[in-house]
């Protein structure tokens, strides 16, 4: 039961055409999402986290973007081959999304009730009255005090944390199978972040939703996720369970990333570890390992060829690095 897959992404490639050349924002990304699981996708800005998930929803602006290859299987169907009607059925109903900035995602001209009722009526075919009472019910569930009164307010009358609660209410109002949360707490303060994360965790269990959590904050990942994918320059460089990623990271990038986060529970050392250099430019990236210019363990072969993922620990984790490839062969 635990291993039932709800979503399979295989070899996804999303490219953007620019005047300077082709940007391979997502290049050959594969992962599975199990039922009830929370999958974390971490990476720095520009690593392709958001594009991966916009591709799942087929929300890539085209042009300039194009999904060049791969398949995304959901309920035995390939999302990439769906027509507009099927997509309408899928978005919001089966898979919904929470975005980073709750202010830009709500229409400032419409009351929260209008926006919530619209979603509920569209997806569940309820009448106006029923939809409104359902709207109040979900707002209540996400912890908005005096939901009955607040439902008729405009978005600007809510604080940032409250707006994010409204977004969560909207996303969960149709009991989706999968919830994609794209940096849901990045715009919020820590005390509010703690509230929202706790709420998401509680609701995911209550509704049995599988969650994909995109974030750059390793602390958030540690507290919430079952499995973690680390992305760098459009590729997943490492996938492992939450414990393994933090205790025994295999890829040099993951190791560097974890070491370079200043930690509150450690004594102040004199110096932070830092990965030297800058992330690569994704335009016309050669067939090398994109991390090799910054990698402390770079070898000859890293400059020529990208390593295929290697499965470790009985297939429970994978890493794309020549360090481990050699040992296999």
């Amino acid at each position: 039961m635990k291993d039932e897959l709800v979503l399979q992404v295989k070899g996804l490639q999303t490219y953007f055409k620019t005047d300077d050349g082709m940007v391979k924002a997502v290049d050959d990304v594969s992962f599975d999402l199990k039922k009830g699981q929370t999958l974390g996708i971490v990476g720095e800005s520009g690593s392709g986290k958001s594009v991966t998930n916009l591709s799942i929803m087929r929300l890539i602006p085209s042009p300039p973007g194009r999904i060049v290859g791969g398949e995304i299987l959901f309920e035995d169907k390939d999302i990439l081959k769906m027509n507009n009607n099927e997509l309408r059925e899928l978005r919001g109903n089966k898979i919904s999304m929470i975005f980073q900035d709750p202010m830009t995602c709500l229409n400032p001209f419409l009351r929260v009730s209008t926006q919530l009722v619209e979603t509920i009526r569209l997806h569940q075919g309820l009448g106006k009255k029923d939809a409104k009472s359902k709207a109040i019910e979900v707002l209540d569930k996400v912890g908005i005090p005096a939901a009955e009164r607040r439902v008729d307010n405009y978005p600007h009358q809510f604080s940032g944390g409250m707006r994010q609660r409204v977004m969560i209410a909207m996303a969960l109002s149709c009991n989706p199978e999968i919830l994609i949360a794209d940096e849901p707490t990045t715009a919020l303060d820590v005390t509010i972040q703690a509230q929202i994360l706790e709420l998401m965790q509680k609701l995911a269990i209550e509704f049995g939703t599988s969650t994909i959590l995109i974030t750059h904050d390793l602390g958030v990942v540690a507290g919430l996720c079952d499995e973690v994918c680390v992305m760098y320059a459009g590729k997943i460089v490492e996938r492992a369970s939450n414990n393994n990623i933090f205790e025994d990271p295999k890829h040099p990038y993951t190791q560097g990333l974890i070491k370079s986060v200043p930690r509150m529970d450690e004594d102040e050392g004199s110096k932070l570890f830092s990965i030297e250099g800058q992330p690569p430019n994704l335009i016309d990236l050669p067939e090398c390992c994109p991390f090799h210019p910054r990698c402390p363990e770079a070898m000859e072969i890293c400059r020529r060829k990208y390593p295929e993922p290697v499965l470790l620990d009985g297939d429970s984790r994978s890493v794309s690095c020549w360090l481990y490839k050699d040992k296999e062969e």
């Binding site: 820590v190 005390t191 972040q193 703690a194 994360l197 904050d217 390793l218 602390g219 958030v220 990942v221 540690a222 507290g223 939450n242 414990n243 933090f246 205790e247 974890i258 986060v261 930690r263 509150m264 529970d265």
Partner: peptide, 11 residues
């Protein structure tokens, strides 16, 4: 207490 710590065991 609200700051997440990047270590699942502690979390």
């Amino acid at each position: 207490s609200a700051v997440p710590i990047p270590d699942p065991k502690i979390e």
